[in-house]
Design a protein around this nucleic acid. Structure first.
Lengths: 189, 189
DNA sequence: CCCTGGACTGAGCAATTGCTCAGCTTTAAT
DNA sequence: ATTAAAGCTGAGCAATTGCTCAGTCCAGGG
């Protein structure tokens, strides 16, 4: 690494991934990225053009998820079963499971429960696409819950950091408890 | 239908679907919709809010594709095989096959050939997701080729109309010829 | 010590975008 | 004929957004 490198470029890339995780593809903006990265707006444009940066971070997120979840030696059907199981397992914490937990933590009303259901469906679909196609490009998109119906910004903000940093301080047991409660409500209701 | 209905609302919905097909989720804008629908900008906001309209049209596109391609009685693996076959069959013209043909028609340089390859992969992924999950919501996205590398706007414009109107005037034989050539180039190169 | 060049800043700009609102047209009811 | 309500228009606005550019800072070569 060049001695003159002060880390801004790398922080911008990381911040873009975080912002995409938090806000989704449609809502992500350069200002959110520069604020999170702690750099001036000019530096982002010095290193990148926004569309290219967004696409690059998007694929980087996907590659991280693939590395974490997919074992190519495994049969697709078995991998799907394993992922579904891991999403409910206190021990394993893949990104997708954490995201479901983030929603489940505040699933106290019907609107959020419905969103939770949609998210679980979307996650399954995306894993199915990944496993069947065996190719990462253009497949991965995080679920974008209806912004007007759900207000989980604060919780989502905290969890997005954990997603990127593998923060060990998340209370997985508590999250999983609420997760199971939410799914139980969904199946009985 | 109310005698006072002059069709603006329905035309806006149809135009939104066309614009989403043409421009993709990120680039679609209200002005493109109102221009295509031939209505004033105020009417769109009288009937809809843009985020809701966009989501609604997005799901409508997906439902049309599902109705056209997916026979629930069929086994997923068989359906996947059938789709792949149909994409190369002169007789059948599902939306996805038409889209591939649109790209193939002008696949005269390596950049477009690469895009064609990406598109085919994306289409397979999306069908795989559809078949495995059995739920339409949030799964369908059209491939968004790199705008700087590919300039197919005119061709895409014409074909998007055919996609929505089932225009019988498209030269399927010619399109399929170019499609097969493009795939042959891809496999040898 | 001076000079070069890359990292970096941030106020502000040019262009965009969803949406408003005053007003017009058409239809149906009274 | 009059009234009311809904469809509809489009110039223009308030807010946003990616990006520019003049300038600062600092490491390293000569």
């Amino acid at each position: 690494m060049d001695r003159r490198d002060r880390g801004g470029r790398e922080r911008i890339l990381m911040a873009t991934m975080a912002v995409l995780l938090e806000m989704g593809l449609l809502a992500a903006q350069t200002r959110a990225v520069t604020e999170r990265a702690g750099v001036g707006t000019g530096l982002l444009n010095h290193h990148f053009r926004w569309p290219e940066l967004r696409a690059r971070a998007w694929e980087a997120i996907f590659e991280e998820v693939v590395a974490d979840l997919w074992h190519p030696a495994e049969a697709p059907a078995a991998a799907l079963d394993r992922f579904i199981a891991e999403a409910f397992d206190e021990g394993a914490r893949p990104y997708w499971a954490l995201w479901i937990q983030a929603e489940a933590l505040s699933a106290t009303d019907t609107a959020i429960q419905a969103a939770l259901s949609r998210i679980r469906t979307a996650l399954r679909q995306r894993l199915a696409a990944l496993l069947l196609a065996g190719n990462s490009q253009g497949c991965w998109t995080l679920p974008q819950p209806n912004a007007t119906a759900i207000r989980l910004e604060a919780l989502r903000d905290g969890l997005a950091g954990m997603l990127l940093n593998h923060d060990p301080d998340i209370d997985t047991a508590l999250a999983t408890h609420h997760l199971r409660q939410a799914f139980a409500r969904e199946q009985t209701g």
